[in-house]
Design a binder for these strands. Structure first.
Length: 882
DNA sequence: CTACTCACG
DNA sequence: ACGTACGTGAGTAGA
């Protein structure tokens, strides 16, 4: 066997074969996004088999570039009359190509040529270079390419059954040479390619003639010698067809390809991307196969373990920049145990599993220094962790996590190894790979851990320039340095400050709710005639829709829907449903908010949420452990939870300011719509004005509350990237009415319509959309052939700049707000952010100042073409804000 | 580990 | 004709 082995795959042919082999399962093979995956799955199966069999050094998958080729030029009906490719298959081609990228395999297509021609051309070159070449296809035609060095594997049954053709096999089975396959096809024609060859000549006759005469040319030179009168007549009559067919059947082996064999070198799997892809596709089988084959093979890195002796050496290093990593076991850095740290100065790496060393003057001084730049992964996590040790992290220059998120919000892993991989740096593993997952998770000691830490530092270092260049190139440098990086520390300090939660209030609620729930439960059991788990949608469905025979309004994938909307429709007629709704509401409050919150209270009587700054696709924050951005407010029962959120000192108040209609104001500003801008400038009731416009009234005073409500829903819809169906569903109006409202809306606010169209157009052209601060969201599905995916991308193209710009604005306000409080030496502290709302605690005597200051800062955070509007409230707890 | 449900902006 | 509102987190049940 040669040490140069080339694998050439006919991408179109194999994808088709895979699709139709698994056609019966086409509806079972869909991922969470509704994309069909059967062909992708089958293709990958074939790939695994061939990679294992051939063990190639070089691989190329060739695709057809389109319908028109040089063959259609000489014969316009070439391949005409074929069935249209099913939509379920069309949508899979792009994913097959993504699969190939992730498997480290090149693919290629060439305008005017078919995949066959690319394969023919490359295999010829490969023969000359001494490669062993294996061609994989579903198409028998390619057997004409067989040679001493080239074999053709034809997949027949599905994709796993393969027949291997080489020169000898062709000669044995057919009695002709591979080259003569072309002559054979020229005479018999090819119905699937829609050319007929010679009338009355099929497989058998053609083969006989080729064996007798050797070639089409020789046959016509000696056409008199053909036996059979009819046959001879047909041959003479269809001579042109035969010669045309020969041209069509011959694979072009001199196609002007712009790829060389050197370019097709097989890279091997890009593990992290491939795992992500398999997850996206729901390919559990391939995922589990990978677990067993993955093994990192990395060389050890030099480092020094910190001891009392090395501290002075560290102090002497004297550099204006260091790279630092603080290890903690667990996501929640407010209380996760420390597992060590690593510090890189002047290319020398120091590591330790004893974080007490950080408190030494030598190291603490470096971390706290405003003159020494720090490069880290996840500055907020590092800041909070160090704060627990009494150390303040100052002068962070590069945050790998934050930079990576800004460059592409889709890459939002919190794992250093995975982030590094995404930026093509592979000399570091993910924590999951080193520590293990689930029950097997265990932090290693000594060398293994230190090596991992050291590699992390090297990864941060290696990626700094690249990511900084990326930020500058994207026009995101200011977003990083002026907004996101400073915000990290504002957030860190808010998290550290925490919010006091009054346990007594929650305990009281707990006993009252439990009591009430017990009562409701008994009523429900009575009405149902049996006991069951009300919290189980499955059991509840059986009781309601089978036992009690209530009308089925909606179904989910797995059974009856018992969602609120459904139950609310049934409630007026069935008391049991009413009771279930109350039970649902109260048990949600009890389990998620009362009990959930109680379990999140730290030893200091406070909850310390974590704001995830690198998660959302739009630039918003999210809040976890506990989530303080979804504390109930809409129902009175739930709202009472807010009574437990109190200031940390006596004679303090909770103070809150929120932007009104910030997203619509952003829309008015960035869309440039004059009508909407005027309404905000004149401080009109925007929903009433919208109602006046879409219902064709003379004056806002004619707007009834019901009309205003409908207009408000339309305004929401617009922000979300409207569709008539969505609006109808959400407001209960008919789809036809919804459609009219939208049309009227766009006629009245033409600038908004223009903005929506331009957003989608720009996303299609650039692949991403941007906020006012150049925060990016890539929308890879915007040109997808799958209607669902494409529509979703279009709606997000419209919504993300709006939601994201609003997020930009409040982020700036937060930074400015903290500065103002510091500048004035105020005791007030910013505690929470809830998307369009900032919540503080402050001593009574500062409330007056805050009432002026906060709205002023929030109003002026950015300059829009419309005014921003901020409303403030305060009270003794988060519930009683006035 | 996924589906469902429901809390927020 | 296609099937939809945008962005999140958490608790529970049940494979």
């Amino acid at each position: 066997m040669s040490d140069k082995r080339l694998l050439l795959i006919d991408g179109n042919s194999i994808t088709y074969k895979a699709f139709f082999a698994l056609i019966k399962l086409v509806d079972r093979f869909t991922n969470n996004e509704g994309v069909h995956t059967n062909a992708i799955y089958g293709f990958n199966n074939m790939l695994n088999i061939m990679l294992d069999k051939v063990k190639p050094t070089h691989v190329l998958v060739a695709f057809d570039a389109g319908k028109t080729t040089f063959r259609t030029e000489m014969y316009s009906d070439y391949k005409a009359g074929r069935d249209k490719t099913p939509e379920e298959l069309v949508e899979q081609f792009d994913y097959v190509k993504e699969l190939l990228k992730n498997r480290g395999i090149k693919y290629y297509q060439l305008k005017n040529y078919e995949a066959d021609d690319i394969i023919g051309t490359l295999s010829k070159q490969a023969d000359g270079l001494g490669f062993d070449t294996t061609i994989v296809t579903g198409d028998n035609d390619l057997t004409q390419l067989c040679s001493d060095k080239t074999t053709v594997s034809i997949s027949n049954r599905g994709v796993s059954g393969v027949v291997r053709y080489d020169t000898d096999y062709v000669k044995e089975t057919m009695g002709i040479t591979p080259e003569q396959i072309i002559d054979w096809k020229a005479l018999k024609g090819d119905s699937s390619d829609n050319y007929s060859g010679v009338t009355g000549v099929g497989d058998k006759t053609s083969l006989k003639l080729v064996k007798q005469f050797g070639s089409v040319e020789n046959l016509y030179d000696h056409v008199d010698e053909v036996s059979g009168k009819k046959l001879k007549e047909h041959l003479i009559e269809d001579k042109d067809e035969a010669f045309l067919a020969k041209k069509l059947a011959r694979i072009n082996r001199e196609a002007p390809i712009e790829i060389s064999i050197d370019d097709t070198e097989y890279e091997g799997d890009h593990l992290d991307d491939l795992i992500e892809f398999y997850r996206q596709m729901n390919f559990r089988k391939f995922l589990s196969e990978m677990n067993t084959t993955q093994n990192a093979n990395m060389k050890d890195i030099e480092y020094v373990e910190v001891s009392d002796d090395t501290l002075s050496e560290i102090a002497k290093q004297d550099s204006d920049k260091v790279t630092f990593y603080l290890g903690m076991d667990g996501d929640n850095y407010h209380d996760a145990p420390f597992i060590g740290f690593a510090l890189k100065i002047n290319d020398k790496i120091y590591v330790s599993n004893d974080v007490e060393y950080l408190k030494s003057d030598q190291i603490k001084q470096i971390i706290e220094s405003n003159d020494v730049k720090k490069d880290v992964f996840d500055a907020k996590r590092t800041y909070v962790g160090l704060n627990r040790l009494g150390i303040t992290l100052n002068n962070v220059d590069f945050d790998l996590l934050l930079s990576s998120y800004l460059l592409d919000t889709n890459d939002n892993s919190n794992d250093l190894g995975k982030v590094a991989n995404r930026h093509d740096y592979f000399d570091v593993q993910s924590d999951d790979d080193v520590y293990g997952k689930g029950a097997k998770r265990e932090i290693p000691e000594g060398e293994k851990l230190f090596n991992h830490f050291a590699r992390k530092l090297n990864a941060i270092d290696a990626l700094k320039d690249k990511l900084f260049d990326g930020l500058k190139e994207n026009n995101q440098w200011d977003l990083y340095t002026d907004v996101e990086l400073p915000l990290t520390f504002v957030l860190a300090r808010m998290e550290i400050a925490g919010v006091v939660v009054d346990k007594d209030v929650l305990n009281e609620m707990q006993s009252k709710l439990s009591e009430r729930l017990e009562e409701i439960k008994q009523t429900i059991y009575n009405d149902a005639g049996e006991e069951f788990n009300i919290a189980s949608p499955k059991q509840l469905g059986v009781i309601l829709f089978e036992k009690l025979q209530l009308p089925v309004i909606k179904k989910t994938k797995t059974g009856y829907s018992t969602a609120v909307g459904v139950l609310e429709q049934l409630a007026p007629d069935y008391p049991i449903v009413e009771a279930i709704l109350e039970y649902r509401q109260l048990s949600k409050i009890l389990s998620t908010y009362v009990e959930g919150l109680l379990s999140d209270i730290h030893g200091d009587g406070k909850v310390h949420t974590r704001y995830l700054q690198t998660l959302t696709q739009t630039g918003r924050l999210s809040s976890v452990d506990p989530n303080l951005q979804n504390i109930p407010v809409r129902t009175e029962e739930g709202r009472k939870i807010r009574q437990a959120f109190v200031p940390s000192h006596d004679n303090y108040q909770i103070f809150s300011s929120d932007y009104s209609q910030i997203e619509l104001r952003v829309l008015a500003s960035i869309s440039g719509d004059k009508n909407m801008q005027d309404e905000f400038i004149h401080n009109d009731d925007i929903h009433a004005s919208t109602a006046r416009r879409i219902f064709g009234l003379k004056d806002n005073s004619e707007v009834t509350p019901e009309l205003r409500r409908q207009a408000k829903a339309v305004n929401f819809g617009i922000v979300y990237g409207i569709s008539d169906f969505g609006l109808a569903k959400n407001t209960g109006i008919s789809r036809k009415d919804a459609k009219e409202f939208i049309e009227k809306y766009f006629a009245e606010y033409p600038g908004v319509k223009k903005y929506m169209d331009e957003s989608v157009e720009s996303a299609k052209k650039n692949g991403y959309v941007e906020t006012i601060l150049h925060r990016r969201r890539y929308l890879p599905d915007i040109n997808s052939k799958n209607f669902n995916l494409r529509s979703f991308a279009e709606r997000t193209a419209m919504n993300s700049p709006i939601q994201g710009s609003a997020a930009d604005i409040i982020k700036i306000a937060m930074i400015k707000m903290e500065n103002e409080l510091n500048k004035r030496g105020m005791k007030a502290k910013m505690l929470l952010q809830v998307h369009d709302e900032l919540i503080f605690e402050a001593p009574d005597e500062e409330i007056e100042v805050l009432s002026e200051l906060v709205p002023k800062v929030m109003d002026s955070a950015v300059e829009l073409n419309v005014p921003l509007n901020v409303k403030s409230h305060y009270g003794k707890n988060w519930y009683s804000l006035k």
